[in-house]
Simulated scan of single mutants.
Amino acid sequence: MNSSPKPDSSSLFGRMAESITKFSGSTAAFVSATALVVVWAITGPLFHYSETWQLVINTGTTIITFLMVFLIQRAQNKDSLVLHLKLNELLAATQGASNRLINAQDFSEEEIKTLHDFYCVLAELAKKDNDLGKTHTVEEAEDNHSEKLAAHAE
């Protein structure tokens, strides 16, 4: 028995938004939109390419685009949150991983820059050591690098 709740199962808007998002990314949606534009173009001579004829496609596409921006953003927010949760789970479950990175998406830009700089230093030291899997901290990498330099100097 699966005890995990279905996402957005209690929300009519959630179910509707998910269905529309899935459909809008499908081949059927693209073919439908293309067919609509072709029909609109074919009717041009019938309506003498009037301003109203042009306004129909402009208004329709503007409204659809406006609404799709919000649906796309909603889907991206959900996907991003799920991705962060999965990464947090991996960090929490991995021996030797830094728990300080759990919920890193909530860090300030300054904190993110500090962590980025830390990992850049770590990467540079790991490159010098030619062993990407051996070190876990800048201090360990610096010690390891110093030991190798000392060994080569002897």
Score class of each variant (00 low, 15 high):
56 V>A: 08
130 N>Y: 09
121 V>C: 12
28 A>Y: 09
26 S>G: 03
38 V>C: 10
109 E>Y: 07
23 F>D: 06
150 A>Y: 09
116 H>L: 15
129 D>M: 13
33 A>Y: 05
141 A>N: 02
115 L>K: 10
9 S>Q: 15
13 F>H: 05
103 N>E: 11
140 E>W: 03
60 G>L: 13
44 G>M: 14
103 N>Q: 13
60 G>H: 02
44 G>H: 07
136 H>E: 05
106 D>F: 13
36 L>P: 00
133 G>F: 08
104 A>V: 08
45 P>D: 10
66 F>W: 13
124 E>H: 08
148 K>P: 01
147 E>M: 13
64 I>A: 15
9 S>G: 07
144 N>F: 13
43 T>P: 01
144 N>H: 12
6 K>E: 15
20 I>G: 01
68 M>F: 12
105 Q>F: 10
105 Q>R: 04
116 H>C: 13
59 T>L: 15
61 T>P: 00
21 T>C: 12
114 T>G: 03
29 A>Q: 03
16 M>S: 13
42 I>F: 08
63 I>E: 04
56 V>W: 13
14 G>H: 05
92 A>V: 05
39 V>I: 14
121 V>Q: 14
73 Q>D: 10
54 Q>S: 09
132 L>M: 12
46 L>W: 12
4 S>V: 14
1 M>I: 05
123 A>F: 09
69 V>P: 00
58 N>H: 07
86 K>L: 11
64 I>C: 06
71 L>R: 03
144 N>T: 09
34 T>P: 00
81 L>N: 01
64 I>L: 15
147 E>K: 13
76 Q>M: 08
46 L>G: 02
44 G>K: 13
66 F>K: 06
27 T>L: 15
132 L>Q: 04
31 V>F: 06
48 H>T: 06
149 L>H: 03
102 I>T: 02
28 A>P: 00
84 H>T: 01
42 I>Y: 10
108 S>V: 05
40 W>C: 02
79 D>K: 09
152 H>D: 14
12 L>V: 11
118 F>Q: 14
80 S>E: 08
146 S>Y: 11
12 L>W: 14
96 G>R: 04
122 L>S: 02
85 L>C: 01
95 Q>F: 05
41 A>W: 07
34 T>I: 06
34 T>D: 04
108 S>N: 01
55 L>F: 05
101 L>C: 07
152 H>P: 00
125 L>I: 02
109 E>P: 01
58 N>I: 13
71 L>H: 07
131 D>N: 11
131 D>H: 06
37 V>K: 02
87 L>G: 01
3 S>C: 12
121 V>F: 07
98 S>L: 08
